[in-house]
Protein backbone atom coordinates (compact mmCIF):
# COMPACT_ATOMS: atom_id res chain seq x y z
CA UNK A 1 0.00 0.00 0.00
CA UNK A 2 2.12 2.86 -1.15
CA UNK A 3 1.29 6.28 0.14
CA UNK A 4 -0.57 8.24 -2.46
CA UNK A 5 1.52 10.24 -4.83
CA UNK A 6 4.60 10.45 -2.69
CA UNK A 7 6.60 7.88 -4.55
CA UNK A 8 8.39 8.97 -7.70
CA UNK A 9 8.00 6.44 -10.44
CA UNK A 10 8.71 6.36 -14.13
CA UNK A 11 5.69 7.57 -16.01
CA UNK A 12 3.98 4.88 -17.95
CA UNK A 13 1.61 6.61 -20.31
CA UNK A 14 1.27 3.59 -22.57
CA UNK A 15 0.44 1.31 -19.74
CA UNK A 16 -2.10 3.73 -18.31
CA UNK A 17 -3.74 4.16 -21.68
CA UNK A 18 -4.02 0.41 -22.10
CA UNK A 19 -5.42 -0.06 -18.61
CA UNK A 20 -7.95 2.71 -19.09
CA UNK A 21 -9.08 1.39 -22.45
CA UNK A 22 -9.42 -2.09 -20.97
CA UNK A 23 -11.37 -0.76 -17.99
CA UNK A 24 -13.56 1.35 -20.26
CA UNK A 25 -14.33 -1.67 -22.43
CA UNK A 26 -15.14 -3.72 -19.35
CA UNK A 27 -17.53 -1.02 -18.13
CA UNK A 28 -19.29 -0.99 -21.50
CA UNK A 29 -19.52 -4.78 -21.67
CA UNK A 30 -20.77 -5.05 -18.10
CA UNK A 31 -23.26 -2.25 -18.73
CA UNK A 32 -24.64 -4.14 -21.72
CA UNK A 33 -24.83 -7.35 -19.72
CA UNK A 34 -26.62 -5.44 -16.93
CA UNK A 35 -29.16 -4.11 -19.39
CA UNK A 36 -29.70 -7.54 -20.93
CA UNK A 37 -30.07 -9.47 -17.67
CA UNK A 38 -32.68 -9.15 -14.98
CA UNK A 39 -35.68 -10.70 -13.29
CA UNK A 40 -37.42 -10.89 -16.66
CA UNK A 41 -35.34 -12.79 -19.24
CA UNK A 42 -35.40 -10.96 -22.58
CA UNK A 43 -33.89 -12.03 -25.87
CA UNK A 44 -31.27 -9.79 -27.41
CA UNK A 45 -33.50 -8.38 -30.14
CA UNK A 46 -36.15 -7.50 -27.59
CA UNK A 47 -33.50 -5.75 -25.50
CA UNK A 48 -32.43 -3.68 -28.49
CA UNK A 49 -36.05 -2.97 -29.44
CA UNK A 50 -36.74 -1.97 -25.84
CA UNK A 51 -34.25 0.87 -26.14
CA UNK A 52 -36.48 2.51 -28.72
CA UNK A 53 -39.92 1.81 -27.33
CA UNK A 54 -42.30 -1.08 -27.66
CA UNK A 55 -43.60 -3.43 -25.00
CA UNK A 56 -40.26 -3.78 -23.18
CA UNK A 57 -39.51 -0.07 -23.10
CA UNK A 58 -40.24 0.22 -19.40
CA UNK A 59 -37.91 -2.58 -18.35
CA UNK A 60 -35.08 -1.54 -20.64
CA UNK A 61 -35.23 2.25 -20.85
CA UNK A 62 -36.89 3.20 -17.60
CA UNK A 63 -35.73 0.52 -15.22
CA UNK A 64 -32.44 -1.13 -16.15
CA UNK A 65 -30.78 1.63 -18.15
CA UNK A 66 -31.15 4.34 -15.47
CA UNK A 67 -29.76 1.97 -12.87
CA UNK A 68 -26.76 1.15 -15.01
CA UNK A 69 -25.98 4.79 -15.71
CA UNK A 70 -26.49 5.80 -12.08
CA UNK A 71 -24.22 2.96 -10.94
CA UNK A 72 -21.47 4.07 -13.33
CA UNK A 73 -21.68 7.73 -12.32
CA UNK A 74 -21.99 7.10 -8.59
CA UNK A 75 -19.26 4.47 -8.58
CA UNK A 76 -16.86 6.83 -10.33
CA UNK A 77 -17.76 9.70 -7.99
CA UNK A 78 -17.32 7.66 -4.83
CA UNK A 79 -14.02 6.20 -6.01
CA UNK A 80 -12.63 9.65 -6.84
CA UNK A 81 -13.84 11.00 -3.51
CA UNK A 82 -11.93 8.19 -1.82
CA UNK A 83 -8.78 8.92 -3.81
CA UNK A 84 -8.89 12.62 -2.99
CA UNK A 85 -9.40 11.94 0.69
CA UNK A 86 -6.57 9.44 0.75
CA UNK A 87 -4.28 11.99 -0.79
CA UNK A 88 -5.52 14.91 1.31
CA UNK A 89 -5.27 13.01 4.57
CA UNK A 90 -2.20 11.06 3.41
CA UNK A 91 -3.82 7.95 4.65
CA UNK A 92 -4.38 4.76 2.69
CA UNK A 93 -7.59 3.87 4.48
CA UNK A 94 -9.20 7.27 4.44
CA UNK A 95 -12.42 7.23 2.44
CA UNK A 96 -15.75 9.02 2.64
CA UNK A 97 -17.20 6.33 4.87
CA UNK A 98 -14.24 5.98 7.22
CA UNK A 99 -13.85 9.71 7.91
CA UNK A 100 -17.54 10.22 8.57
CA UNK A 101 -18.68 12.14 5.49
CA UNK A 102 -20.96 9.33 4.35
CA UNK A 103 -22.33 9.06 7.88
CA UNK A 104 -23.05 12.79 7.96
CA UNK A 105 -24.83 12.45 4.62
CA UNK A 106 -26.76 9.46 5.95
CA UNK A 107 -27.82 11.39 9.03
CA UNK A 108 -29.05 14.27 6.87
CA UNK A 109 -31.04 11.85 4.73
CA UNK A 110 -32.50 10.12 7.77
CA UNK A 111 -33.64 13.40 9.29
CA UNK A 112 -35.32 14.18 5.98
CA UNK A 113 -36.92 10.71 5.78
CA UNK A 114 -38.32 10.97 9.30
CA UNK A 115 -39.30 14.62 9.59
CA UNK A 116 -40.61 15.48 6.14
CA UNK A 117 -43.85 14.10 4.68
CA UNK A 118 -43.39 11.18 2.24
CA UNK A 119 -44.34 13.41 -0.68
CA UNK A 120 -41.41 15.74 0.00
CA UNK A 121 -38.64 13.19 0.27
CA UNK A 122 -37.92 13.42 -3.43
CA UNK A 123 -36.09 16.69 -2.78
CA UNK A 124 -35.68 16.78 1.00
CA UNK A 125 -33.43 13.72 1.06
CA UNK A 126 -30.88 15.12 -1.42
CA UNK A 127 -30.92 18.42 0.45
CA UNK A 128 -30.32 16.61 3.74
CA UNK A 129 -27.51 14.59 2.20
CA UNK A 130 -25.68 17.64 0.92
CA UNK A 131 -26.11 19.55 4.17
CA UNK A 132 -25.03 16.58 6.30
CA UNK A 133 -21.94 15.82 4.25
CA UNK A 134 -20.93 19.47 4.08
CA UNK A 135 -21.43 19.95 7.82
CA UNK A 136 -19.21 16.99 8.68
CA UNK A 137 -16.53 18.17 6.26
CA UNK A 138 -16.55 21.72 7.59
CA UNK A 139 -16.36 20.50 11.18
CA UNK A 140 -13.58 18.16 10.09
CA UNK A 141 -11.53 20.98 8.66
CA UNK A 142 -12.33 23.41 11.47
CA UNK A 143 -11.61 21.00 14.32
CA UNK A 144 -8.59 19.57 12.53
CA UNK A 145 -7.20 23.08 12.20
CA UNK A 146 -8.05 23.89 15.81
CA UNK A 147 -6.27 20.77 17.05
CA UNK A 148 -3.28 21.82 15.05
CA UNK A 149 -2.02 18.28 14.77
CA UNK A 150 -0.85 16.39 11.73
CA UNK A 151 -2.81 14.82 8.98
CA UNK A 152 -3.61 11.65 10.84
CA UNK A 153 -5.31 13.75 13.47
CA UNK A 154 -7.61 14.96 10.74
CA UNK A 155 -8.55 11.42 9.78
CA UNK A 156 -9.33 10.55 13.38
CA UNK A 157 -11.37 13.71 13.84
CA UNK A 158 -13.39 12.43 10.90
CA UNK A 159 -13.80 9.07 12.58
CA UNK A 160 -15.02 10.80 15.72
CA UNK A 161 -17.55 12.90 13.79
CA UNK A 162 -18.72 9.78 11.98
CA UNK A 163 -19.20 8.00 15.30
CA UNK A 164 -21.26 10.92 16.59
CA UNK A 165 -23.42 10.94 13.45
CA UNK A 166 -23.85 7.17 13.84
CA UNK A 167 -24.95 7.61 17.47
CA UNK A 168 -27.53 10.20 16.47
CA UNK A 169 -28.77 7.92 13.68
CA UNK A 170 -29.20 5.12 16.18
CA UNK A 171 -31.04 7.50 18.48
CA UNK A 172 -33.39 8.40 15.61
CA UNK A 173 -33.99 4.76 14.72
CA UNK A 174 -34.93 4.02 18.30
CA UNK A 175 -37.12 7.07 18.80
CA UNK A 176 -38.83 6.90 15.40
CA UNK A 177 -38.98 3.19 14.65
CA UNK A 178 -41.62 3.49 11.93
CA UNK A 179 -39.15 4.31 9.17
CA UNK A 180 -36.48 1.80 10.18
CA UNK A 181 -36.87 -0.58 7.24
CA UNK A 182 -36.63 2.20 4.68
CA UNK A 183 -33.77 3.85 6.50
CA UNK A 184 -31.81 0.62 6.71
CA UNK A 185 -32.09 -0.07 3.00
CA UNK A 186 -31.24 3.50 2.19
CA UNK A 187 -28.26 3.45 4.52
CA UNK A 188 -27.06 0.22 2.93
CA UNK A 189 -27.05 1.91 -0.48
CA UNK A 190 -28.95 0.80 -3.57
CA UNK A 191 -29.66 1.89 -7.13
CA UNK A 192 -33.25 0.66 -6.78
CA UNK A 193 -35.76 3.12 -8.17
CA UNK A 194 -33.30 5.24 -10.14
CA UNK A 195 -34.93 7.23 -12.92
CA UNK A 196 -33.90 9.24 -15.93
CA UNK A 197 -34.46 12.39 -13.86
CA UNK A 198 -31.95 11.06 -11.33
CA UNK A 199 -29.42 10.65 -14.12
CA UNK A 200 -29.93 14.24 -15.20
CA UNK A 201 -29.55 15.57 -11.66
CA UNK A 202 -26.44 13.54 -10.95
CA UNK A 203 -24.85 14.37 -14.31
CA UNK A 204 -25.32 18.10 -13.79
CA UNK A 205 -23.93 17.85 -10.30
CA UNK A 206 -20.89 15.84 -11.40
CA UNK A 207 -20.24 18.09 -14.40
CA UNK A 208 -20.09 21.00 -11.98
CA UNK A 209 -17.48 19.09 -9.99
CA UNK A 210 -15.44 18.17 -13.05
CA UNK A 211 -13.32 21.36 -13.34
CA UNK A 212 -12.27 20.97 -9.70
CA UNK A 213 -11.35 17.34 -10.32
CA UNK A 214 -9.23 18.22 -13.36
CA UNK A 215 -7.46 21.14 -11.70
CA UNK A 216 -6.73 19.11 -8.58
CA UNK A 217 -5.45 16.21 -10.65
CA UNK A 218 -3.04 18.56 -12.42
CA UNK A 219 -1.86 20.06 -9.12
CA UNK A 220 -1.34 16.63 -7.61
CA UNK A 221 0.57 15.57 -10.67
CA UNK A 222 3.20 18.23 -10.04
CA UNK A 223 3.24 17.67 -6.31
CA UNK A 224 4.65 14.19 -6.63
CA UNK A 225 7.43 15.11 -4.29
CA UNK A 226 5.18 16.31 -1.50
CA UNK A 227 4.38 19.53 0.25
CA UNK A 228 7.78 21.11 -0.46
CA UNK A 229 7.20 20.97 -4.19
CA UNK A 230 3.82 22.56 -3.82
CA UNK A 231 5.33 25.38 -1.78
CA UNK A 232 8.07 25.99 -4.30
CA UNK A 233 5.39 26.28 -6.95
CA UNK A 234 3.61 28.91 -4.85
CA UNK A 235 0.73 26.62 -3.83
CA UNK A 236 -0.27 26.31 -0.22
CA UNK A 237 -0.56 22.65 0.76
CA UNK A 238 -3.41 23.55 3.08
CA UNK A 239 -5.39 25.15 0.29
CA UNK A 240 -4.85 22.15 -1.96
CA UNK A 241 -5.83 19.88 0.89
CA UNK A 242 -9.03 21.85 1.60
CA UNK A 243 -9.80 21.77 -2.12
CA UNK A 244 -9.38 18.00 -2.17
CA UNK A 245 -11.60 17.49 0.86
CA UNK A 246 -14.35 19.79 -0.41
CA UNK A 247 -14.34 18.21 -3.85
CA UNK A 248 -14.52 14.80 -2.21
CA UNK A 249 -17.53 16.02 -0.22
CA UNK A 250 -19.28 17.28 -3.34
CA UNK A 251 -18.65 13.99 -5.17
CA UNK A 252 -19.79 11.96 -2.17
CA UNK A 253 -22.94 14.04 -1.68
CA UNK A 254 -23.92 13.60 -5.32
CA UNK A 255 -23.43 9.86 -5.19
CA UNK A 256 -25.06 9.38 -1.80
CA UNK A 257 -28.08 11.45 -2.82
CA UNK A 258 -28.51 9.11 -5.79
CA UNK A 259 -27.73 5.69 -4.36
CA UNK A 260 -27.48 5.99 -0.58
CA UNK A 261 -24.40 5.49 1.55
CA UNK A 262 -22.42 2.87 -0.32
CA UNK A 263 -19.17 2.10 1.47
CA UNK A 264 -15.83 0.61 0.47
CA UNK A 265 -15.74 1.83 -3.10
CA UNK A 266 -13.88 4.93 -1.97
CA UNK A 267 -11.54 2.78 0.05
CA UNK A 268 -10.76 0.06 -2.44
CA UNK A 269 -11.05 1.49 -5.94
CA UNK A 270 -8.02 3.78 -5.52
CA UNK A 271 -5.95 0.81 -4.30
CA UNK A 272 -6.85 -1.38 -7.20
CA UNK A 273 -6.15 1.49 -9.59
CA UNK A 274 -2.80 2.14 -7.94
CA UNK A 275 -1.81 -1.48 -8.39
CA UNK A 276 -2.53 -1.15 -12.09
CA UNK A 277 -1.21 2.26 -13.07
CA UNK A 278 1.07 3.39 -10.26
CA UNK A 279 0.81 6.49 -8.14
CA UNK A 280 0.86 9.44 -10.53
CA UNK A 281 -2.26 11.54 -10.42
CA UNK A 282 -2.83 11.90 -14.15
CA UNK A 283 -2.89 8.11 -14.44
CA UNK A 284 -4.57 7.44 -11.17
CA UNK A 285 -7.58 9.75 -11.53
CA UNK A 286 -9.08 8.20 -14.68
CA UNK A 287 -8.17 4.66 -13.65
CA UNK A 288 -9.76 5.15 -10.22
CA UNK A 289 -12.97 6.56 -11.68
CA UNK A 290 -13.27 3.66 -14.12
CA UNK A 291 -12.51 1.09 -11.43
CA UNK A 292 -15.17 2.60 -9.18
CA UNK A 293 -17.74 2.60 -11.99
CA UNK A 294 -16.93 -1.01 -12.81
CA UNK A 295 -17.14 -2.08 -9.16
CA UNK A 296 -20.53 -0.52 -8.47
CA UNK A 297 -21.92 -1.80 -11.77
CA UNK A 298 -20.81 -5.31 -10.82
CA UNK A 299 -22.18 -5.01 -7.27
CA UNK A 300 -25.52 -3.81 -8.61
CA UNK A 301 -25.74 -6.62 -11.17
CA UNK A 302 -24.93 -9.26 -8.57
CA UNK A 303 -27.40 -7.72 -6.12
CA UNK A 304 -30.16 -7.77 -8.71
CA UNK A 305 -29.61 -11.33 -9.85
CA UNK A 306 -28.42 -13.36 -6.91
CA UNK A 307 -31.68 -13.57 -4.96
CA UNK A 308 -34.43 -13.19 -7.58
CA UNK A 309 -37.05 -11.83 -7.36
CA UNK A 310 -35.62 -10.05 -4.33
CA UNK A 311 -32.85 -7.53 -4.44
CA UNK A 312 -29.77 -7.28 -2.31
CA UNK A 313 -28.78 -3.61 -2.06
CA UNK A 314 -25.64 -2.92 -4.08
CA UNK A 315 -24.01 -1.35 -1.03
CA UNK A 316 -24.23 -4.62 0.80
CA UNK A 317 -22.79 -6.58 -2.10
CA UNK A 318 -19.98 -4.01 -2.19
CA UNK A 319 -19.33 -4.53 1.52
CA UNK A 320 -19.41 -8.29 1.29
CA UNK A 321 -16.91 -8.23 -1.58
CA UNK A 322 -14.97 -5.27 -0.21
CA UNK A 323 -14.69 -6.60 3.32
CA UNK A 324 -12.59 -9.67 2.49
CA UNK A 325 -10.50 -7.57 0.11
CA UNK A 326 -9.79 -5.21 2.98
CA UNK A 327 -8.78 -8.11 5.27
CA UNK A 328 -6.51 -9.39 2.56
CA UNK A 329 -5.04 -5.97 2.00
CA UNK A 330 -4.34 -5.39 5.68
CA UNK A 331 -2.87 -8.85 6.26
CA UNK A 332 -0.73 -8.62 3.16
CA UNK A 333 0.49 -5.23 4.28
CA UNK A 334 1.31 -6.56 7.73
CA UNK A 335 3.29 -9.49 6.32
CA UNK A 336 5.11 -7.43 3.76
CA UNK A 337 6.23 -4.84 6.25
CA UNK A 338 6.38 -6.89 9.42
Amino acid sequence: MSMALTQPQMSQPWRTTLVCIALGLLVVVLALISIALGAVPLSLDRVVAGLFGGPDAFIISQYRLPRVVIAILSGAALALAGLFLQVALRNPIASPDVVGITKGAGLGAMLALIFTPPAWIVWSVPAGVILGAALVALLLLAIGRGLGGGITTLALVGVSLGALAQAVMQFLMVRYPRGIDQSMVWLAGSTYGSTVADIISLSIWLLACLPAVVILAMMLDVSTFGDDTLKSLGLSPNVVRAGLVLTAVALTAGAVASVGSIGFLGLLAPHVARLMVGPRARHLVPATALTGALALLLADLIGRLVALPNEIPAGIVASVIGGPYLFFLLLWEARRRG
Binding site: N91, I93, A94, S95, D97, V98, A155, L156, V159, M184, L187, A188, G263, F264, L267, I312, P313, G315, I316, S319, V320, G322, G323, L326, F327, L330
Partner: peptide
Protein backbone atom coordinates in the same frame (compact mmCIF):
# COMPACT_ATOMS: atom_id res chain seq x y z
CA UNK B 1 -6.79 2.22 14.66
CA UNK B 2 -8.10 3.35 11.29
CA UNK B 3 -7.78 -0.20 10.00
CA UNK B 4 -9.82 -1.40 12.96
CA UNK B 5 -12.46 1.22 12.35
CA UNK B 6 -12.65 0.24 8.68
CA UNK B 7 -13.06 -3.37 9.78
CA UNK B 8 -15.82 -2.34 12.13
CA UNK B 9 -17.63 -0.67 9.21
CA UNK B 10 -17.41 -3.88 7.15
CA UNK B 11 -18.88 -5.87 10.01
CA UNK B 12 -21.67 -3.35 10.57
CA UNK B 13 -22.54 -3.52 6.85
CA UNK B 14 -22.64 -7.29 7.02
CA UNK B 15 -24.96 -7.20 10.04
CA UNK B 16 -27.19 -4.84 8.06
CA UNK B 17 -27.13 -7.23 5.11
Amino acid sequence: ALAGIALQLVLAAMVQA
